[in-house]
């Protein structure tokens, strides 16, 4: 009895506020837009019993999904989100790996402090961290002032409201997610392996390629997914740092809902985004599983 209550409370909460809402999205994605409140149809009417349910089911269709494939805006936005997420993840890896490596090789007594310094930005507001780049990258911003003072440029560079700014924003905000798993993989590594490789005639660089990198593989994979998955549906970064030509699906969904008030299409956009996300999520889980098994 006590056990049933203990399981039941969080269970019912999640069913009511996670599963059911998601089923509603699925249902509305199959509905049509209507000039009514709520602005979609059909409405489920169970007062007529089963026949009401069947009438309701008969009205559902895949029209919105067909619409998404026809209007080039949407598939361009999906493709461009994927491309931005891929590229940004790769840059984050290039930036994050040397930092994680440096941390793992730092003196033992320094490591907790370095770790805290990586985690600290994570506790700071995401919105503020994105906003901090607006003052740096704008036309009269700190970066342009610095570059023109150095005599590198004559006219200010347009960086804010471009995809470059979006990349900078993503790399900056998601860097801790890349550093932490790589650091924890590198920290566990036995350094005597490197000494052995060098004793056997490996150069430092090839010892890195042949020993260190393969041993940190699980950390690299975890870090990449931890950056890639949230980036794909990102809304704040493209809307604050990106320009009108920045196409990202999170932003499209937001605009479809708040500006165009087209709930059925917004729901269909959400359903497809989830379908795209399922693949990296499964791969990520598999990597985590493998790591857990390797650790025993």
């Amino acid at each position: 009895m006590r056990r049933a209550v203990l399981i039941g409370i969080p269970y019912l909460w999640l069913v009511a506020l996670f599963l059911v809402p998601f089923l509603i999205v699925l249902k509305i994605s199959l509905s049509d837009i209507a000039l009514a409140r709520p602005p979609y149809m059909p409405q489920l009417d169970l007062s007529e019993g089963l026949s009401g349910l069947f009438a309701f089911l008969a009205e559902l269709d895949f029209e919105n999904f067909v619409f998404l494939t026809q209007d080039s805006l949407y598939w361009k936005a999906y493709l461009s989100s994927l491309q931005i997420a891929f590229t940004a993840t790769f840059i984050t890896l290039l930036v994050g790996y040397p930092i994680a490596y440096g941390m793992a090789r730092a003196a033992q007594e320094w490591r907790p402090t370095l770790l805290m310094l990586v985690i600290l930005p994570f506790w700071t507001s995401f919105l503020i961290r994105v906003y901090s780049w607006m003052g740096i990258l704008s036309n009269e911003g700190v970066l342009n002032q610095l570059l023109s003072w150095l005599g590198v440029i004559d006219a200010p560079l347009q960086i804010l409201n471009t995809n470059t700014a979006v990349y900078i924003g993503i790399v900056y905000t998601y860097l801790p997610f890349m550093i932490l798993p790589i650091y924890s993989a590198l920290e566990k590594m036995d350094e005597s392996l490197l000494e052995a490789a060098e004793d056997l005639g490996c150069s430092r660089l090839s010892a890195f390629w042949l020993v260190t990198l393969p041993l940190s593989k699980s950390g690299v994979i975890a870090g990449c997914f931890l950056v890639f998955i949230p980036t794909l549906g990102e809304f704040v970064i493209p809307s604050l740092l990106g320009g009108s030509q920045t196409l990202m699906i999170g932003k499209i969904l937001w605009e479809e809902f708040f500006s165009n008030r087209d709930w059925p299409v917004a729901s269909a956009v959400a359903v497809i985004l989830l379908l795209i996300l399922i693949i990296p999520i499964i791969l990520f889980q598999r990597n985590e599983q493998k790591q857990r098994e390797a650790e025993g």
Binding site: L17, V20, P21, F22, I24, V25, I28, P230, L232, G233, E234, F235, G250, L253, W254, F257, W263, A266, S267, A270, L273, L274, L277
Partner: peptide
């Protein structure tokens, strides 16, 4: 993605 969580809860 937060946009989906938000959208689905609002629709609920």
């Amino acid at each position: 993605p937060e946009v989906i969580t938000g959208l689905s809860l609002l629709l609920l």
